[in-house]
Design a protein around this nucleic acid. Structure first.
Length: 679
DNA sequence: GTAGCGTAGATTTTT
DNA sequence: TCTACGCTAC
């Protein structure tokens, strides 16, 4: 027999003083003030989803919930920061104990506390895409696969197969059969590599992104006592962007919310765009069945867009079959202008039009920060970038290149990672490979000498690194540099005490890396500047392990150090992929490259898979619902640099999804007959 | 075994 | 246009 006994904390001495009735509409109010238990909130685009979530947190705190009992799971670090920031502004109570973060960062936080329970140590390394690739390459070599005349799949391909399997909770063979049928001939070998990869991660005390989710779930399933610890703590769980959660994330939420904890999942099925990462819409669609008695709230008032844009959005998404039936209502008055559809002769003209029109808007008073150019894939932004540069218009691009993924940043991090995780083969190899005369073979030999020294598995690091390392056999050409590297490691951690991040970075730079930069790159100065910025950022961390975890988990798209950042975002046009634009909004949005094969994506069209096409359509929906006042849909008629040879473009099939009355057709000449853009 | 050079091939979205 | 790989010369 067990008895439930609740400790009642004294009622909060202060309340936020928020007038919830006045601040929220009826739908939002109902969701925010929902009682304990399970709730699903279907919040359409622009309906105040973030607002609802932050007010929900405030409401809980106002009603006596201790912030430390709240867990807020978001999709990006940026969303987490935004929400905690807003909560902090709204409520006077101390909210620092509230946990908010991405599934991956929360997973990493939990795993660090219990790493020993599952065969790792607290300072395990996190492998990003690139590290994962290096490890897989090495694992594949070690597996000595008989390839004969045939080609074995590349590390990238294997990484995505493994990842999809982990995230969907399915077997490798299943993923191969359904998503990569051409790999069937390699099924046995791939299984072998997968097994070896798992072993290697364990041996090197490393986890990839997927491990952060899968191993957290594993930890909870194998250690019910630990799960109870967190269940008792997190009495209120809130999940943002629930439509994009995958099987593992869904499982994690359900585990934590077990018992009588409260769970509120917020999302919009029409904006599910991450199936390639395992996102499973059936989680949101099946939420009411999985949680009997769950309340379902729907928020359908759109505050963002003018009705003309909303009409087009609603019509576009209606072409999809698998979705909750709903129709967003515009709160704003008509603008009197319909979205523009603009065909242009070629990609250059498309860029010229976009930039010229954007300048017009700017001259008419719209800040550059209120304008965005969105596209399906990053390479489609090339012409726009050139044109903006030529005209001297500042722009911010959330490019695929992330600050922390650049080679020089990762090189520096490799030193730090090795010092705190002495089993980290990937980092060691990366570090050693910087030495002149040290290729793959020499690095591998150095690594085996390190393993043989016994220090890799020792609980404490060597008090003086060079005492151990200087005795190693290195290629003649590398001797002097190796010596330098050893002494640098001495500075990073003496007598087993790691230095603070900025000190480490300084030592690495002055000890070995500056030399390397100068010898290797023609832009050594900008790279050095990046590393100095890294050091600045590291100043905010006492703990190196914490710092390194942040590096791996944070992308520049999330904010923090991205590019130069001198000009305030106010004064910049935004260039962004649609995926990265999710959750954001602008006064004017240009959606470019609306050509079959570009958007929707060509591979999707080949496959004739309706689900994938529906996802492309949701992506289109996400794009058009970013716009508040003006929306331009553009496409080139010819694509002279097409690789596929399809020079003549077919306008995107998405144009067939909405009636012509909803749009305005623009004819733009190239100077011959109608140079002027009609208004 | 390494480093430098040339050629062929490929282009989605990201925690 | 850029990258990744393979070949060749040291």
């Amino acid at each position: 027999m067990s008895r439930q006994y609740t400790l009642h904390r004294p009622a909060a001495t202060r309340s936020s003083g928020i007038d919830y009735r006045a601040a929220l509409n009826d739908d939002q109010y109902a969701a925010v003030t929902s009682g304990p238990g399970r709730a699903l909130v279907i919040a359409g685009a622009g309906s105040g989803k973030t607002r609802t979530l932050t007010y929900r947190v405030a409401w809980l705190i106002d009603h006596g919930v201790d912030p430390r009992e709240i867990l807020l799971l978001t999709f990006t670090n940026k969303a987490a920061r935004e929400m905690t920031g807003r909560v902090r502004e709204q409520v006077p109570q101390d909210t620092s104990a509230l946990w908010a973060g991405t599934f991956h960062s929360i997973g990493s936080r939990i795993l660090r506390r219990h790493a020993e329970e599952i065969g790792f140590t607290r300072s395990f390394s996190i492998l990003d895409r690139d590290d994962q690739k290096s490890m897989l390459k090495s694992v594949i070599e070690a597996c000595r696969i008989e390839t004969g005349q045939r080609r074995f799949p590349k590390p990238e391909v294997l990484a995505s197969v493994f990842s999809l399997a982990e995230n969907t909770g399915s077997a490798i063979e299943e993923v191969i059969d359904t998503r990569h049928p051409h790999l069937i001939e390699w099924e046995d070998e791939i299984a072998k590599v997968h097994k070896a990869y798992l072993e290697r991660k364990l041996a090197t005390n490393s986890m990839d992104f997927d491990d952060l989710l899968v191993r957290t779930v594993g930890l909870f399933e194998s250690h019910p006592d630990i799960l109870d610890l967190y269940r008792l703590r997190f009495r209120h769980i809130l999940v943002d962007e629930y439509q994009d959660t995958n099987a593992v994330q869904g499982r994690l939420v359900d585990l934590l919310a077990g018992g009588d904890n409260s769970l509120m999942a917020v999302g919009d099925d029409a904006q599910s765009i991450y199936s390639w990462r395992g996102a499973d819409m059936s989680l949101i669609l099946g939420f009411p069945e999985r949680h009997p008695g769950a309340k379902v709230y729907t928020i359908e008032t759109n505050y963002r867009s003018v009705p003309e844009i909303l009409d087009l959005s609603n019509a576009a998404i209606r072409a999809n079959r698998g979705r909750f039936e709903k129709s967003l209502q515009a709160a704003r008055p008509s603008a009197g202008v319909r979205p523009a559809v603009v065909p242009l002769p070629d990609p250059q003209s498309q860029a010229a039009f976009v930039v010229q029109r954007l300048c017009d808007l700017h001259e008419a008073g719209m800040p550059l920060g209120e304008i965005a150019v969105l596209y399906r894939a990053h390479f489609q932004s090339l012409e726009i970038q050139l044109e903006l540069t030529a005209r001297g218009i500042p722009f911010a691009i959330t490019s695929g290149l992330r600050f922390f993924e650049q080679a020089h940043v990762k090189d520096v991090a490799a030193f730090m990672r090795f010092v705190v995780n002495r089993r980290d083969e990937v980092s060691f190899t990366r570090m050693a490979g910087l030495l002149p005369g040290c290729g793959p073979a020499a690095c591998a030999r150095l690594w085996s000498q390190w393993l043989a020294s016994g220090w890799a598995d020792c609980d404490t690091p060597p008090p003086v690194w060079s005492d151990v390392l200087l005795g190693f056999k290195v290629p003649k050409k590398s001797e002097a540099h190796w010596c330098q590297l050893c002494h640098t490691l001495d500075e990073l951690s003496a007598d087993g005490v790691p230095a603070r991040p900025p000190e480490m970075i300084f030592s690495i730079l002055e000890g070995v890396y500056d030399d390397y930069l100068r010898a290797t790159f023609d832009n050594a100065d900008t790279r050095r500047a990046d590393i100095e910025r890294l050091s600045e950022y590291g100043g905010g961390f006492e703990d190196v392990v914490e710092f390194l975890a942040q590096l791996s988990l944070m992308s520049s798209a999330d904010g923090e150090p991205n590019g130069k950042g001198e000009v305030a975002d106010e004064a910049k046009v935004t260039l962004s992929s649609i995926h990265q634009a999710k959750g954001l909004e602008w006064g004017a949005v240009f959606l470019i490259w609306l050509v079959d094969g570009q958007f929707p994506n060509g591979r999707v069209l080949e496959g004739e898979d309706d689900d994938l096409l529906e996802e492309e359509r949701r992506l289109f929906y996400v794009a058009v619902t970013r716009a508040r006042d003006e929306l331009y849909l553009t496409y080139p008629l010819f694509n002279p640099r097409s690789y596929s040879g399809d020079v003549v473009c077919r306008p995107s099939r998405f144009f067939e999804d909405f009636p012509q009355e909803l749009i305005e057709h623009w004819n733009v000449g190239d100077g011959g007959f109608s140079d002027e853009i009609p208004f």
